[in-house]
């Protein structure tokens, strides 16, 4: 009993744990848990329950610590064996992957912004009637866009759409308002290809038809959209314009996102970039599709996808989009 009383078992446990956590695990185990250890000797002399509980508790904790430490050392040893000085700077095993075309990436981004604002995405056909592309959109007979020098006709009544706006007509003819939709797609104009012109390009049309829509709603919507696309500090301004199917008509500019409006070569030092055309839906267009302009009002706007891609990514030549050189496709 004397020997038991003489040992400070809390200090013994501390010393043992400290030794176990060191590198000489076996030595520590022999010294503190082995047959000749003070603990083993003391346990052999235990007679009362209290001392038994105390010493067995110490023993159990130390044994657990030894097991845990054994496991730890074993893992370390295995890791050391596995890492035979691998050069981690060597490239990984190649995984073949492709890319979405830049125009698709931007188109999806635009679609997603509008989806988030509660608009549906509309797919319209590219070959439409003269009625859908011009007449229903209030375009008078003398308007230059009707000219065979500007537009691809299949026959006197059929053409390749010059704008995504026929989708406005198709949507209003088939949907019951309210209508909130965007329509991205290919459009066609008789432009000889060069760095900034292509006979085919992508446009996005946006149409909102509801009660009490104003030009202020147009400005707000365009602004929200461009802030999503180009950053939170962008502003939108409207200038007077003419489109046959909107009245009033405006052009809209966005704060230059390359110079933050301070002025640079891209924005011709104006701080603004022309982005597209817009306006309040002409009441005659509503009448054409059988909607009462006293009940329904709307706005529409349109802009080009290529232009956004070129400005944002610094592409100098529109034709690159159609050449499909994987060295360019792979950059984005």
């Amino acid at each position: 009993m004397d020997s038991l009383a003489a040992v400070d078992w809390a200090a013994y446990e501390q010393q043992a744990l400290s030794a176990i956590s060191g590198d000489a695990l076996e030595d520590a185990r022999v010294k503190y848990l082995g047959r000749k250890s003070e603990l083993a000797q003391a346990l052999r002399g235990v007679r009362d329950k209290e001392s038994g509980m105390l010493l067995n508790g110490v023993k159990a904790r130390l044994e657990a610590a030894v097991t845990a430490r054994e496991h730890q050392l074993e893992l370390a040893a295995r890791r050391a064996a596995a890492d035979s000085g691998v050069d981690v700077t060597i490239p990984g095993t190649p995984v073949t992957r492709g890319r979405l075309h830049l125009l698709t990436q931007i188109r999806r981004e635009i679609e997603d912004i509008f989806l988030g604002m509660g608009y549906e995405v509309w797919d319209g056909p590219e070959v439409v009637t003269v009625w859908e592309n011009f007449d229903a959109l209030n375009t008078d007979q003398g308007h230059p866009s009707r000219s065979k020098l500007d537009t691809f006709y299949l026959d006197d009544d059929t053409l390749l759409r010059t704008q995504t706006s026929p989708d406005q007509i198709k949507a209003m003819l088939t949907r019951t308002p309210p209508i909130y939709m965007v329509s991205p797609g290919r459009v066609y104009r008789r432009d000889t290809p060069d760095a900034t012109h292509s006979p085919t390009f992508q446009q996005v049309e946006c149409l909102a038809v509801d009660r009490g829509i104003t030009l202020a709603d147009l400005r707000g919507t365009v602004q929200q959209y461009f802030r999503q696309l180009f950053g939170p500090d962008r502003d939108v301004r409207m200038r007077t314009s003419f489109f046959p199917f909107t009245e009033p008509s405006v052009e809209f500019d966005v704060t230059c996102f390359l110079c933050d409006g301070r002025g640079c070569a891209v924005c011709k030092h104006s701080g603004w970039i022309e982005m597209g055309g817009a306006g309040w839906v002409d009441p005659d267009v509503f009448r054409t599709v059988g909607l009462d302009p006293d009940d329904w009002q709307g706005f529409a706007f349109g802009f080009g996808i290529e232009r956004i891609a070129m400005l944002r990514h610094g592409l100098p030549d529109l034709r690159a989009f159609w050449e499909n050189d994987v060295r360019i496709l792979g950059q984005f």
């Binding site: 509660g118 309210p178 909130y180 909102a208 509801d210 009490g212 829509i213 104003t214 030009l215 202020a216 709603d217 400005r219 707000g220 919507t221 602004q223 929200q224 939108v236 301004r237 409207m238 200038r239 007077t240 405006v250």
Partner: peptide, 11 residues
């Protein structure tokens, strides 16, 4: 046009 506020449709 410069004075038109930016609002959103009340849907």
């Amino acid at each position: 046009l410069e004075d038109v506020p930016a609002t959103l449709p009340r849907r």
